[in-house]
Amino acid sequence: MLNEQKIKKMRKLATYESGKGRKQLRISKYYRSDYIGLSLIKNFFLTTIAYGLLLLVYFGSKSDYLMDNINQIDVVALGVKVILFYLVMIAGYSIITYVYCSVKYRQAQEGVEEYYQELSQLKKMYDREETKAGKAAKRRKA
């Protein structure tokens, strides 16, 4: 016999698993510190690549000026500015990544917790049905 409540619950669970639950279930497999740490490592490499590309574009656009004034440029001061800007960029994006991943992890934990509650409710429905079927079978035997 079909139970509409079970069907609705299973459909809700399947929709979650195939939608936003796919990412949330993957995120929830990590410890919070591991998830955020991995994201920060990715952030470091991606920010470094982006910074390198920005430097190439900037110095490429200023190449005429650099070639004309190569002897008058204070290379040490320029190097210090480049490194300071890099450190500021890394720090800024790391803070943004940390906050973003913390919020994302918390939302994933809440979503997965709700998913597991729904799953346990579905299991209770099956258990109740099973005990009813077992009692009915015992009555028939008696």
Rank of each mutant, 00 (worst) to 15 (best):
M1N: 08
M1F: 13
M1E: 07
M1L: 11
L2C: 02
L2A: 06
L2N: 03
L2G: 00
E4T: 12
Q5F: 11
I7P: 00
I7A: 03
K8Q: 09
K8V: 08
L13I: 15
A14R: 15
T15H: 06
Y16V: 13
E17F: 08
S18Y: 08
S18W: 11
G19W: 13
G19A: 10
K20M: 12
G21K: 05
G21S: 10
R22H: 13
R22E: 14
R22G: 09
K23M: 14
Q24G: 01
Q24M: 15
Q24I: 03
R26H: 14
K29M: 12
K29W: 08
Y31G: 11
R32I: 14
R32S: 02
R32C: 04
Y35S: 01
Y35H: 06
Y35K: 04
I36E: 03
G37T: 02
L38F: 07
N43F: 01
N43L: 01
L46M: 06
T47L: 03
T47H: 02
I49Q: 00
I49P: 02
A50H: 05
A50P: 03
Y51N: 01
G52L: 08
L53N: 06
L53I: 13
L53E: 04
L53H: 07
L54R: 10
L54E: 11
L55R: 12
Y58P: 00
Y58S: 06
G60H: 10
K62A: 09
S63K: 14
Y65F: 15
M67Q: 13
M67S: 07
N69I: 15
I70D: 04
I73K: 06
V75E: 01
V75S: 04
V75D: 00
V76H: 01
V76I: 15
V76Q: 05
V76N: 07
L78F: 07
L78S: 11
G79R: 09
V80A: 10
V82C: 06
F85D: 06
Y86P: 01
L87D: 00
M89Q: 08
G92N: 07
G92M: 13
G92E: 06
Y93K: 10
Y93I: 09
S94K: 02
I95C: 07
I95W: 11
I96L: 12
I96A: 13
I96E: 06
T97V: 06
V99G: 03
C101G: 00
C101R: 14
S102M: 07
S102Y: 12
S102I: 09
V103G: 01
K104W: 05
Y105V: 06
R106D: 02
Q107P: 00
A108G: 01
E110V: 07
V112P: 01
E113G: 03
E113K: 10
E113W: 04
E113L: 08
E114P: 00
Y115R: 08
Q117I: 12
Q117C: 02
Q117S: 06
Q117N: 05
E118H: 03
L119M: 07
S120P: 00
S120G: 00
S120Q: 10
Q121H: 10
Q121K: 13
L122G: 00
K123E: 09
D127F: 15
E129N: 12
E130W: 15
T131E: 07
T131I: 15
K132R: 14
G134L: 13
K135R: 15
A136Y: 11
A137Q: 14
A137V: 15
K138R: 14
K138G: 02
R140S: 09
R140P: 03
K141H: 08
A142S: 07
A142H: 09
